[in-house]
Computed example of a mutant assay.
Amino acid sequence: MTDFKLISDTEWRQRLTPEEFHVLRQAGTEPPHVGEYTDTTTEGVYSCRACGAELFRSDEKFDARCGWPSFFSPLAGDRIIERRDISHGMVRVEVLCANCESHLGHVFEGEGYDTPTDLRYCINSISLTLEPQEK
């Protein structure tokens, strides 16, 4: 089994496209409203594009109208890492894949969405792959 935390930047560059590398490994952000999963309503499981770890389910996805896929909860708390982010003159909470430590997006609290939690996991589409649920 691969220990994704030991993979070098050189190997990540070989595994990922330049755009994926920028977001997943350099904590970049894709432009709003362009990601393939922003408006997707397909049922299934969203996994980390870098390592394949399952992260979110479509039942936790909601339309936040923010330009990126939004979820009110991860699949399980141990699937992600939440880390304080003080970049760009803001204080935010960065969300990373716990399996490979790739950047996924940020989580915000207290925005007033009608969801079971008071959280919005704002995740870059390019950080995810969707495995549709079989019907």
Rank of each mutant, 00 (worst) to 15 (best):
T17H: 02
C122L: 05
G77C: 06
R83E: 02
L6S: 15
W12H: 11
D78L: 10
Y113C: 11
S127W: 01
G44N: 08
Q26V: 09
R25M: 00
T41I: 07
E111G: 13
W68A: 12
V107M: 14
P31V: 11
E43T: 01
L16S: 03
R92M: 09
R83V: 08
R79D: 07
Q133D: 14
D114V: 01
L119S: 06
R57E: 15
G110E: 04
G112W: 13
R83Q: 11
L16F: 11
S8A: 08
C100M: 02
P132Q: 01
I123K: 01
C100H: 02
T40R: 03
R92N: 04
R13A: 14
L75D: 05
I81V: 15
P32G: 11
K61P: 09
E11D: 15
Y113H: 13
T117A: 08
G52P: 07
E109T: 08
R65W: 03
G52I: 03
R65H: 12
H22V: 01
F56P: 06
M1V: 13
D114Q: 14
P32I: 11
Y46E: 06
G89W: 09
G28Y: 13
E43S: 12
G35Y: 11
G44H: 12
Q26Y: 04
L96V: 01
R25S: 04
A64W: 07
N99H: 14
V93H: 10
N99C: 12
E54L: 02
Y113K: 12
F72C: 13
C51W: 00
K135P: 08
T115Q: 15
C51T: 03
A76H: 13
C97R: 02
E54Q: 08
H103A: 00
A98H: 05
R79G: 05
S47R: 14
G67N: 10
R25Y: 06
Y37A: 06
I123F: 09
Q133S: 13
G44Y: 08
V93K: 12
D114N: 14
G89F: 02
I86N: 15
L16P: 06
S58T: 03
T38G: 05
F71N: 12
P69Y: 08
Y113L: 08
H22A: 03
M1S: 15
M90I: 02
F71D: 14
R120V: 03
R15S: 08
L104Y: 05
C122V: 00
S125F: 07
L24D: 00
T29F: 03
G110Q: 04
H88I: 08
I123S: 06
E20R: 00
R13Y: 09
K61H: 07
P18Y: 09
R65P: 00
T117G: 13
N124P: 10
F108E: 01
D39Q: 12
Q26C: 10
E30V: 14
C66L: 07
L128R: 07
V91W: 07
K5W: 09
D59F: 05
G110R: 06
A76P: 07
G52M: 06
F108R: 09
R120D: 10
G35T: 02
A98G: 11
V93S: 14
S70P: 03
D9T: 05
F72H: 15
A76M: 06
D114Y: 07
I7S: 12
T42N: 11
I81G: 00
